[in-house]
Amino acid sequence: MLISRNVKETRKDRILSWVFIMPVIIILLVTAFIPLGYGLVLSFFKYKLNMPGMKPLFIGFDNYINMFKDEMFVQSLTNNITFAILSVTIEVVVGIVVAMMLSDDSKRSRLITTILLVPMIIAPVAAGTLWRMMFDRTYGVINYLLSLIHLGPVSWLSDYHIAIFSIIFVDFWQFMPYVAVLVLSSLKAIPDSFIDAARVDGASSFDIFGKIVLPVISPVIIIVTMIRFIDAFKVFDTVFVMTQGGPGSSTEMLPTYIYRQGIKFFQVGYSSASAILFIIAMSVVAVLFNKLRTRQLRRLN
C-alpha cells in the first residue's frame, strides 16, 4: 500500500522514487514492449530472413489468413489443445487426490512432499532427456520392465498415435506435484473441528469431500487449473528433446511450431502473426478463467 500519512515527502525522495523503478521500466521496455510491438508490425509483412535481398513487403492480414490454410498450424493447434486438456485434467484430479492423502501432516507425508518437489524443480530439458532415455524402444528401461510382464515393446516416442501421450505423461510427472503442493497448502486451512463435527453428525467421506473440502479448495483449484492450462501452451523444452514435434507432426505444439517457422525457416512475418494470434487466444482464455474465478469468489462470500 502507498501510505504517506503525517510524513512530509521531500522533492529528493520523489525523484529517487522514480529513479528506483527506472531500471525495471527500461528492462521491461527492451525485453517486452519493444519486441511485442515489433512483432505486431512484422506480422503484417512478408519477410523472410534467408533471402537477404528481399525487402519486407506489406501484405496486410495475409499472414493471418494463410495460417488457417496451413495444415501444420492447424495440427499443432489441435495437438496443443489435446495436450492441454488431457494433461491438465489428469494433473488436477490426481493432484487433488495426492494432496488429500498427504494432508495428515505426519512425518512420512512431509518426506513424500519433499520428494515430490524434485520433478518440478529440475530443468524440463533434463526431465525430457531422462524420459527420452527411458522410453527408448530398444534400450529403454520402460520397455524392459514391460517385457517382464510379457507386454510391449511399445514405440513410446516414434509411434504416431502414442508419442503425444508420452509427452503428456512427462508433463504429468513434472507438474502433478505442483498441483498437489498447492492444493495441500490450501487444505491446511480447513480446521480439524469442521471435519470432526461432520463425522459426529455421521457424514460419509464423500459428503465431507463435497461439502467441506471442495468449497475450501475450489478457489485454489481454479487458479491452479488456469496456470497449468496456460503453461500447457508454453510447452517447448520437453517436446524439443523428446520428439522434436514428430513423428510427422503428431507432437508439434504451438511454441515448437512458432520456433520452427521463425527461427529455423526464417519465416519472420508469418511466425510473428502466429505469435500475435496466440496472445489473443490466451487473453480470451484468461478472461474466461477470471470470470469463473470472480463468480466463485462471490459465491463464497
Binding site: 511485442l36 508454453k234 505469435a275
Partner: peptide, 19 residues
C-alpha cells in the same frame, strides 16, 4: 505480472532475436 504469466515467452522470440 498477470500479462507475463499468461503469454508464453515464445511469442516474442522472433523480435527478441532481432533486437
Amino acid at each position: 505480472f498477470l500479462i507475463q504469466k499468461m503469454y508464453p515467452a515464445i511469442v516474442i522470440a522472433v523480435p527478441v532475436f532481432f533486437v
